[in-house]
């Protein structure tokens, strides 16, 4: 009996045979070519990631204006305006149409009174000043240690920035790009990409006690630019801080010493850890500013190795009293 499945393959003509064998040979050759093209000694074809470097955000030096200004008072927007006015006005630093990044300390899920983060009123005031200088965009960012949404909301900074016309930039995990810091301890490290997208950078730290580095003020504030495993930086904290300060040269710095966290830093948490000092300090030289601010924490520059490293690298002057500075009371 013939098979039930009796569909038969048709016989090939000469032409069909040639076409079919050409196709099969073509596939075979294609497979061989792909093998040849992709042959490698490496198990994985890694994409080369672009490595960024920091721009120099600093402006040209000038002897006309004081090196730094200390303003004491209670009305924060006025204090900020006065400080910048003495330094030559905001237009000395920010040109119309420029993108500005402000880096306050927003590391912790704490309220303003607890002084773990930069004073929101001061951040708002500086955003408004940048707006007045017709900056095209004013971004405020930090790589917070606690949940960023909570940090920005509960520190009051999100609200202050939005009201002043700035934008809070939350650094999500995709917002860090490899950047060469060219330091001694820190070389290629993930850095918040916002730093590479702007023209000017303003450092806005708060003065706090810190157990390992003794103080966290302007130079240490740059920790918040980094992503990755920055908890490893503690193993050589002074070199790391100096490396960061050398890599990121801000346009200017305003230190918030309106409330100073004197104990249990840098987290604080209790109002008894906070001293009300009602002061802000603005200037360009981060070493001098840090060195001046040590007074709030009853520390001496000789306690702080990173200041010395910074001075040796030419980042600034520890002996702030030797500089031309101004003090104002408002």
């Amino acid at each position: 009996m013939p098979s039930q499945h009796k569909a038969r393959e048709p016989l090939l003509t000469r032409r069909e045979l040639i076409v079919k064998s050409a196709l099969t040979c073509g596939f075979a050759a294609g497979a061989g070519a792909l093998g040849y093209l992709f042959y490698s000694d490496e198990p994985i074809n890694r994409r080369k990631e672009k490595i960024y470097t920091f721009k120099d955000y600093a402006i040209a030096q000038s002897n006309v204006y004081p090196a730094f200004v200390v303003v004491r008072g209670k009305v924060i927007p006025q204090m900020a305006a006065a400080a910048l006015d003495r330094l030559g006005g905001i237009s000395r630093f920010i040109n119309p149409g420029e993108k500005v990044l402000i880096k306050p300390n927003v590391g912790w899920d704490r309220q303003p009174e607890q002084a773990a983060n930069t004073n929101p009123e001061l951040v708002g005031a500086v955003v408004a000043l940048c707006r007045e200088a017709r900056a095209s965009e004013v971004w405020v960012t930090d790589a917070s240690i606690n949940d960023p949404y909570r940090c920005f909301a509960r520190s009051g900074i999100e609200d202050a920035v939005n009201r002043a016309g700035g934008t809070v930039k939350y650094a999500s995990e995709n917002d860090f790009v490899l950047t060469d810091l060219k330091g001694q301890a820190l070389r290629v490290w993930p850095v918040s990409r916002f730093f590479h997208d702007v023209d000017k950078v303003i450092n806005m730290p708060v003065v706090k006690q810190h157990s390992l580095s003794r103080c966290t003020i302007a130079m240490k504030n740059w920790y918040g630019a980094l992503g990755g495993q920055r908890n490893r930086l503690h193993q050589d904290i002074h070199t790391s801080i100096a490396d960061l300060a050398a890599a990121i040269r801000p346009t200017f710095t305003i230190i918030d010493a309106t409330r100073v966290l004197k104990r249990n830093g840098p987290t604080g948490g209790s109002l008894s850890d906070v001293a009300i000092e009602n002061t802000i300090i603005a200037g360009i030289d981060e070493v001098a500013l840090d060195s001046y601010s040590l007074g709030f924490l009853e520390l001496d520059p000789s306690d702080i190795p990173f200041l010395e490293i910074g001075e040796k690298r030419g980042l600034g002057v520890i002996d702030w009293a030797s500089l031309h500075y101004e003090e104002l009371n408002i």
């Binding site: 240690i145 390992l212 908890n231 503690h234 249990n264 987290t267 008894s272």
Partner: peptide, 16 residues
């Protein structure tokens, strides 16, 4: 024998 105390830095209670 390596410097660290990250744990102390981030401890949220006051006193830590």
């Amino acid at each position: 024998n390596t410097e660290c105390i990250v744990c102390e830095e981030v401890c949220p209670t006051s006193p830590k």
